[in-house]
Nucleic acid binder design. Structure first.
Lengths: 178, 178, 178, 178
DNA sequence: TATGAATGAGAATTCATTCAT
DNA sequence: GATGAATGAATTCTCATTCAT
């Protein structure tokens, strides 16, 4: 609902009706309307983090690990256009929301990406002249931007995974040591 | 004000007071509160587009042109933390706002970047195996993500221009034909 | 709880928790939240009435009987600051509550005081030129006001019984026939 | 409206309609619904205080001054049954309201009465063996109780001023030095 | 008897917008 | 053009009460 109508335009009573419960019941499980949005985000980013850690454990080379990150971030949203819209668009409704709740969890995610880069640099696979954290922010932003334009546009099925391969190609060849 | 408190948390009366006019006066110049935000965005993106076109005219090689894009997008926000926050965070109020007003102008901007890529591919400078539009979305997203994390974090002076160089290095070597 | 937080600010669930039972259990013993307050009041005023009647039976002279009334009304609350607050403050929730439930019982109480006065007048002990009912209302109000200011203030231990003696002195010498 | 329906049972929108303004307009003049009630009380008690001080200035003897207090407190409500109900009943809805807002102004009023008593004691007119503040609380309570029973009952015209004379007789002869 | 999760009616308050001055 | 007092629609959240277990 947040994706379709926007967070502020969505009434709690609509969420309740869609969930098949009474208005008050929402408040037995969520502290406030804000909490509803934040929980959605946290659920997903924690899921992403957990899945990512597990997947990374199976990929030995830095190249594979980076592709893994890219595939997972876009994969989380593939087929879930509404979720993509909530996370890339609606979540950013208010700075307060972002700073207070989303930022900490989000930083954990950036840290994970940065660690992949740093390890690749240490092993000599990636160029050492760039900041791992900056690269992490670049990668996150690139994928987020792709998801956003995908969600706001036609959101074609399979579009994100096709994008993932190309983006990975470009970023990887930009990061590999010469 | 939108940046500091969020669009919805900012009252029109606060904007009026900050501008030193009466509440009603706002409505002599803007159709609605939404219009206030959209105008802000349009002003800036049109400025960015115009400045970018002018700057691109002076850069002959695709490499220089791409660096130019990167420097300008981040440069627009350098030193204007609040503006960065409005554009990367607050503007994403609602899908309606994005789709109806921001998207068209935004597409013009993506088109400009895509054109730079396509020209680079045609001239043989950039690898031909990636979609110019996808690369444009990647570049925009990367820069937007950097600006967002910069704005939400400490927003250190000079941070964005230092970032620009490194991002340009990575993206360029990822895009150059072998 | 009603005394500490006010009747409207006290949730039934808080009363239930304080009583160590589940919310629903309250409704097995009380018809409604209002009933909770009314029962509290009725319990106490009936207790006061019964105790008062018993005590009055032992005091032969009008003077003693009047002192008895004063001591009992203030004595009921001595050491029970919360109860004093409920009766003097919180019970006055709404005119409806007062008129419908409290007033009848309350009138019984005023009647008892008025009877003490009337008997004193008949016996020649009290001045005959004042209405017994008006005097009863005066006495009740005076004691209620003392209890209220005591409850809203520091509610010092022993404060009410010390007050009782002085008030009785004043009222008695005001009522005695010349 | 508060008197007729009780404070909690009265909706702000009803007050607004009765006042012939829109709901929101209430909030341009009062901070909250509570403030509406408190303002009513403060207005009146300040009026009472001012009128009382002025009237007291014209009465030389302690006896006259005490009668003056009694006449004014009951006189304020004479003919204003609703106001009497608000002040004696509705205002006492919550301890918070009383303690936080009403108490300070109320104490000023009690102080004024106590001063009348203390002066009477100093001049030798009143018995010296009772606390002026306790007597003030007694007098206030007696009058408040009379007003309350009057408001909750038939509230006959002229009832309060007739009561005033009798109460003054009793209290005065109770207070005069022997 | 006791429970406590679910209910949903209800109300205070906010704030974008208007328009008489 | 500018003002800012007044508007009133709109919405979150609370909490007394119920009832299946």
């Amino acid at each position: 609902m947040f994706a379709r109508k926007g967070f502020y335009a969505t009434k709690v009573s609509e969420v309740a009706k869609a969930a098949g419960v009474a208005d008050g019941t929402i408040y037995l499980y969520f502290k406030s309307k804000d909490d509803l949005l934040v929980s959605l985000f946290e659920d997903r980013i924690m899921l992403l983090l957990a899945t990512l850690e597990r997947a990374l454990a199976l990929r030995p080379t830095p190249q594979e690990r980076l592709r893994c990150v890219i595939e997972m971030q876009l994969g989380l949203l593939e087929g879930e256009r509404d979720l993509a819209e909530v996370i890339t668009v609606n979540l950013r409704q208010s700075t307060r929301l972002m700073k207070q709740y989303a930022a900490p969890k989000f930083m954990l995610y950036l840290d994970t990406i940065a660690r992949v880069i740093a390890e690749g640099q240490k092993s000599g696979a990636f160029r050492p002249d760039v900041s791992p954290h900056l690269v992490a922010r670049t990668i996150f932003g690139a994928l987020d931007g792709i998801a956003m334009t995908w969600a706001l546009g036609k959101a074609e099925a399979g579009g994100l995974s096709r994008a993932a391969t190309q983006v990975a190609d470009v970023l990887l060849s930009g990061l590999l040591a010469k």
